Simulated scan of single mutants.
Amino acid sequence: MADDAASDDERWLVINGRRWRRTDPSLPAELVAALTSHLGRGRSGVRRAQGDPDALAAARRRVDLAKHGLGERGPYWWDEPESERLHRARQALAELEGLED
């Protein structure tokens, strides 16, 4: 189910000539905030984990889950019904909250 109202500017962010997928705009602000917090923690963990393969894998998993929840990875959010997108975001957050820090 395509979201015809979403333009390329709403779907993509271009930084230094590279195109990045934007966060799904239909997600509630509190859900985006929680997922973004986990994304930041994951990115910090990646920086701290250099030389520790287990810590690096765990941090990258946190980043990946958060980005999938935000709609920045995985299926294009504009091609799916809003209910599926919301379900995926909530599932990602639940899994993230179950991870050890």
Rank of each mutant, 00 (worst) to 15 (best):
A34H: 04
D79L: 15
E82A: 11
S26V: 07
R11C: 01
L35H: 00
A29E: 09
L70D: 01
E97A: 14
R90L: 15
W12N: 01
A59P: 10
L13Q: 04
W12T: 09
H87K: 04
R85S: 04
G51E: 13
R73H: 04
D24H: 09
D3K: 06
V46E: 15
S44A: 11
G74L: 00
A49V: 05
A5S: 02
R48N: 10
N16Y: 03
R11P: 08
L96D: 03
G17V: 01
D8G: 09
G51M: 13
E84T: 07
R73Y: 01
A33Y: 09
G74H: 03
S7I: 01
S7K: 13
E80S: 08
L56E: 14
N16Q: 13
S7L: 14
L39W: 00
D79F: 01
G69D: 06
A58L: 14
W12R: 06
S37N: 12
E84N: 02
R73M: 03
P28T: 10
V46T: 02
V46G: 06
R43T: 13
G40L: 10
A55F: 02
R88C: 07
A89H: 00
M1G: 08
E100F: 15
W77N: 03
E97M: 09
E10I: 08
I15R: 06
R48C: 12
Q91K: 00
S44F: 15
E100D: 15
N16V: 10
R88S: 09
A2W: 03
R22H: 06
L96Q: 00
E10D: 15
L93S: 04
L27N: 10
R48W: 11
D79M: 05
L96H: 00
R90M: 15
L39T: 00
R60T: 02
A34F: 10
W20A: 00
P75T: 09
G98R: 13
E97L: 14
A2M: 12
A94R: 07
Y76E: 06
H38V: 12
P75D: 04
G42C: 15
R85P: 05
Y76D: 14
A55L: 12
R11G: 07
V14L: 10
H87M: 04
A49E: 13
L70N: 03
S26E: 11
L39G: 07
R19P: 09
S37C: 08
A29N: 11
D3Q: 04
A59F: 00
N16P: 05
R22W: 04
H38I: 14
A6L: 09
P81D: 08
S26L: 10
E95V: 02
L27D: 06
R90Q: 15
L86C: 02
G74I: 06
S26F: 02
Q91V: 12
H68Y: 13
A33C: 15
D64S: 08
D79H: 07
E30R: 06
D3M: 09
V32R: 07
D8N: 05
E82V: 11
L99Q: 05
L86E: 08
D24M: 03
T23G: 03
R85A: 02
E97Y: 00
R11D: 12
A89L: 11
E30L: 10
P81A: 07
A57K: 04
A89K: 00
L70A: 02
H68F: 05
D8C: 12
L93N: 10
G71C: 03
R18P: 03
D101A: 13
R61P: 08
V46I: 12
L86D: 05
P75R: 04
W12V: 11
G69K: 01
R73S: 03
R47L: 10
